[in-house]
Amino acid sequence: MNIGLDMMGGDYAPLEAIKGLKLFLDEYTGPVTLFCIGQQENFTSLLEEHKIDQSRIKVINAPEVIGYHEHPAKALKEKQQSSIAIGFHLLSSGKIDAFASAGNTGAMLVGTMYTIKAIEGVQRPTIATVIPKLNGTTGLLLDVGLNVDCKPEHLNQFAVLGNLYAQKVLGIDKPTVGLLNIGEEEGKGNQLAQTTYPLLKENASINFIGNVEGRDLIQNKADVVVCDGFTGNVILKMAETIYDIAVHRKLEDDQYLHRFHYENYGGTPILGVAKPVLIGHGISNDVAFKNMILQAVKMVESDFCNIIKSAFHSEKVD
């Protein structure tokens, strides 16, 4: 198994990427090679300093870097020797099995859509986030920002993608699926919610339990909750704020509140594309990088992308 890691992505790169790489290699003993992609002169000495096992990595020099404030499409086109561009080339050519970066989010999305592309039958790939629940389990919310304006058939596909991810990667047996709404009763909500509901209700490939409200997200009502990207992103940013408040009030050691820390989840997978791509938070620390690599490994080990291909081919999800 070969995993590509952008060494130049993130506010604290390449140091935190190196430290995260070390944590991963110390924890994961399976057969994996990490392709470390970035400006070689900026991190090779760190590999030695942190005693990285050289037999388990391969350094790929990428002399250019795409900054956070650069135009994604323009930067990818003009910086073919950047860590992100080279990472996608390695992924599309089959030299690596997954690619993870905490770099320019827009560039990662553009690279994914134009290099890796959506699985046949998937109208719109989506991004999801894990939601900590009060009972100690985790749930999944999608979309959280990739698709601001959605149609009912998009949300129906998000439900299928989220259901598969919950099963195959999060390990949730027979996940339940809910539609985020302003009330529990069928017929509630705006036009999008009202027209999505019957599609989910008739979808035999998911276990749809009906509408769920915002207060249900942290309860054990639904394992997977579907919404448009505008709503999902507002919820995601609010969840991040909860942790910020906890830190400000010195409550970050609370067992439940700590689960809102981004580092626990590493990166956001793009669901519905042909190969595993993970996008990390710009402020990723070593633990976040470790967990992002672990998540990439899980997606490869579970053969997740091929599972999606099979599902959309056999079920003909619209």
Results as ranks from 00 to 15, higher is better:
residue 142 L to G: 02
residue 8 M to N: 07
residue 236 L to T: 11
residue 296 A to N: 02
residue 73 A to Y: 08
residue 202 E to L: 10
residue 130 V to W: 08
residue 47 L to H: 06
residue 155 L to E: 12
residue 46 L to Q: 08
residue 79 K to Q: 09
residue 170 L to M: 15
residue 307 I to W: 07
residue 135 N to D: 15
residue 210 G to H: 11
residue 147 N to P: 02
residue 285 N to L: 00
residue 47 L to F: 09
residue 3 I to G: 02
residue 292 M to T: 12
residue 103 G to Y: 04
residue 242 I to V: 15
residue 309 K to T: 13
residue 222 A to G: 15
residue 179 L to K: 09
residue 17 A to K: 01
residue 300 V to K: 00
residue 22 K to Y: 07
residue 281 H to L: 07
residue 146 L to W: 01
residue 66 I to T: 08
residue 70 E to M: 08
residue 163 N to G: 08
residue 130 V to L: 08
residue 280 G to A: 02
residue 144 V to M: 04
residue 69 H to A: 02
residue 199 L to M: 13
residue 295 Q to G: 00
residue 207 N to I: 14
residue 99 F to E: 08
residue 299 M to Y: 03
residue 271 L to H: 04
residue 58 K to E: 09
residue 298 K to P: 03
residue 4 G to P: 07
residue 38 G to I: 03
residue 260 F to Q: 04
residue 68 Y to S: 14
residue 85 A to T: 03
residue 42 N to K: 12
residue 290 K to N: 10
residue 41 E to C: 00
residue 317 V to T: 09
residue 217 L to W: 15
residue 314 S to N: 15
residue 310 S to G: 14
residue 104 N to D: 02
residue 132 P to H: 10
residue 22 K to W: 08
residue 251 L to Q: 11
residue 205 S to N: 13
residue 155 L to Y: 14
residue 1 M to N: 07
residue 204 A to S: 12
residue 174 K to P: 14
residue 203 N to H: 09
residue 218 I to Y: 15
residue 72 P to K: 02
residue 67 G to I: 05
residue 273 V to W: 10
residue 196 T to D: 09
residue 225 V to T: 15
residue 125 P to K: 00
residue 80 Q to N: 07
residue 192 L to H: 07
residue 212 V to T: 12
residue 293 I to S: 01
residue 230 F to S: 13
residue 30 G to N: 02
residue 197 Y to F: 15
residue 90 L to W: 13
residue 127 I to F: 05
residue 20 G to H: 08
residue 15 L to M: 09
residue 97 D to W: 03
residue 21 L to F: 04
residue 1 M to T: 12
residue 20 G to V: 03
residue 299 M to A: 04
residue 278 L to A: 08
residue 163 N to Y: 14
residue 301 E to M: 02
residue 100 A to Q: 01
residue 180 L to A: 11
residue 74 K to S: 11
residue 39 Q to L: 01
residue 75 A to D: 11
residue 79 K to P: 09
residue 180 L to Y: 11
residue 240 E to I: 06
residue 82 S to A: 07
residue 218 I to P: 10
residue 99 F to S: 05
residue 244 D to S: 12
residue 39 Q to Y: 00
residue 182 I to E: 12
residue 70 E to K: 02
residue 190 N to Y: 07
residue 174 K to F: 15
residue 52 I to Y: 06
residue 119 I to L: 11
residue 303 D to N: 15
residue 50 H to N: 08
residue 50 H to E: 12
residue 85 A to R: 05
residue 287 V to C: 01
residue 237 K to P: 13
residue 20 G to F: 04
residue 43 F to H: 00
residue 111 G to R: 03
residue 212 V to Q: 06
residue 157 Q to A: 14
residue 21 L to N: 05
residue 251 L to G: 04
residue 280 G to F: 00
residue 199 L to A: 09
residue 146 L to G: 04
residue 202 E to G: 06
residue 241 T to D: 12
residue 26 D to I: 08
residue 245 I to H: 07
residue 249 R to F: 15
residue 272 G to C: 05
residue 10 G to L: 04
residue 182 I to F: 14
residue 254 D to R: 04
residue 318 D to P: 13
residue 152 P to L: 10
residue 257 L to I: 09
residue 65 V to D: 12
residue 208 F to S: 06
residue 234 V to W: 14
residue 116 I to L: 03
residue 243 Y to M: 09
